[in-house]
Design a protein around this nucleic acid. Structure first.
Length: 355
DNA sequence: ATGCATGAGAA
DNA sequence: TCTCATGCATA
């Protein structure tokens, strides 16, 4: 009953996928379990008795939390973006941005829209027990590390180049960014031609590593790469954020996304190295920006509760989301988005673990 | 490096 | 409404 996630991301055609990267199968369950936050529950959760498990999950989540706390979860966003229109930055058109785009690769998959889970014992039990509270700990303090990004200043940029890649199916098109992009998808996806071949995870992995290394050698930051991409006049390709470049290097993008971005970054890298060789042009540093969007921060206890719910029911109904939101004293939308992001995260983890 | 968010497109 | 690609804000 849980295999609805068998959607393989890919762009390729239906018949093109390689057997190798196909994680579905039972392995996905194993993997998922490996990623689960609640160790004690793992064994049975997906087996079948949801209700009991739900209660346990709940209990587990509520264990440490027995407190009340003064925390006020919303307030988070005041979106007042100032327009920063630079070359690349997506300018918020009307209030904020518009834009991302897409790679849509879903053809075959899908999930059940309306009724997946059946056991809803949770509305009552689980939610009742939960204590949205304050602190507890025991969980995970932060083990954050990361030096982080700084923005240096030199960059290399180049000018034109083109590649052509096109496809026009409606199903999958990768498009990058906001402004006027189109979608260009690498590798041979449609039409059967011989565009870019290898959807090979192996290759992607090594490329990402090489990319990072060479990028550093060029003295360019992830952010620089992102903006410099616009200088490559690849149709449909504009700039990308530091986040995306970072995620590409760390392989934390979906397989499809990695495959789509690879040729673009590869083109940039070559151009950048070529450009550096001859003359270094100026860095294109644009700076400016005042952005005021605030990020919601979900406290650890609430997060643990959400994880517990997620372990049992990754796709809660709207009603359930509302109930959870209320219990945790979070906005419904925040909860909904959290679940969405959690699913994406798990999917990526599953995939990478499989390879 | 990541968490939370937006938005387009597909169900 | 969900998924997926992306991004801003932030630790």
């Amino acid at each position: 009953m849980m295999s609805m996630n068998s959607k393989q991301p890919f762009s390729i055609h239906p018949m093109l996928h390689e057997p190798k990267y196909n994680p579905l199968h039972s392995s996905s369950e194993a993997l998922r379990r490996a990623c689960l936050p609640a160790p004690s529950l793992q064994g049975n959760i997906f087996s079948g008795f949801d209700e009991t498990l739900l209660q346990r999950a709940e209990a587990l989540a509520a264990v440490d939390i027995q407190k009340s706390h003064p925390f006020k979860p919303d307030a988070t966003y005041h979106t007042m973006t100032t327009m920063t229109s630079m070359t690349c930055t997506p300018t918020p058109s009307s209030g904020h941005l518009h834009h991302p785009s897409v790679l849509t690769a879903h053809h075959h998959h899908h999930h059940h829209p309306g009724h997946h889970q059946s056991s809803q014992g949770l509305d009552g039990d689980l939610l009742d027990h939960l204590t949205p509270s304050g602190m507890s700990l025991g969980g995970m303090p932060g083990s954050d590390l990361c030096p982080s990004a700084s923005h240096n200043a030199h960059a290399a940029h180049m000018s034109a180049m083109n590649h052509m890649q096109q496809q026009h199916h409606h199903q999958q098109s990768i498009n990058m960014h906001p402004h006027g992009l189109a979608h260009g998808l690498p590798h041979g996806s449609m039409g059967g031609h011989g565009g870019e071949p290898e959807p090979d995870p192996r290759e992607l992995e090594s490329f990402a590593e090489r990319f990072k290394q060479r990028r550093i050698k060029l003295g360019v930051t992830q952010a620089d790469v992102g903006s410099a991409l616009a200088n490559l006049k690849i149709p449909g390709v504009g700039c990308l954020s530091q986040s995306t470049i970072c995620r590409f290097e760390s392989l934390t993008l979906s397989h499809n996304n990695m495959v789509a971005l690879k040729p673009i970054l590869e083109a940039w890298l070559e151009e950048a190295e070529r450009a550096q060789r001859e003359k270094m042009s100026k860095p294109e540093i644009f700076n400016g920006g005042d952005k005021k969007r605030k990020r919601t921060s979900i406290a650890a206890p609430e997060k643990r509760s959400l994880e517990a719910y997620f372990a049992v029911q990754p796709r809660p109904s709207s009603e359930k989301i509302a109930a959870i939101a209320e219990k945790l004293d979070l906005k419904k939308n925040v909860v909904r988005v959290w679940f969405c992001n959690q699913r994406q995260k798990q999917k990526r983890m599953k995939f990478s673990a499989a390879h």
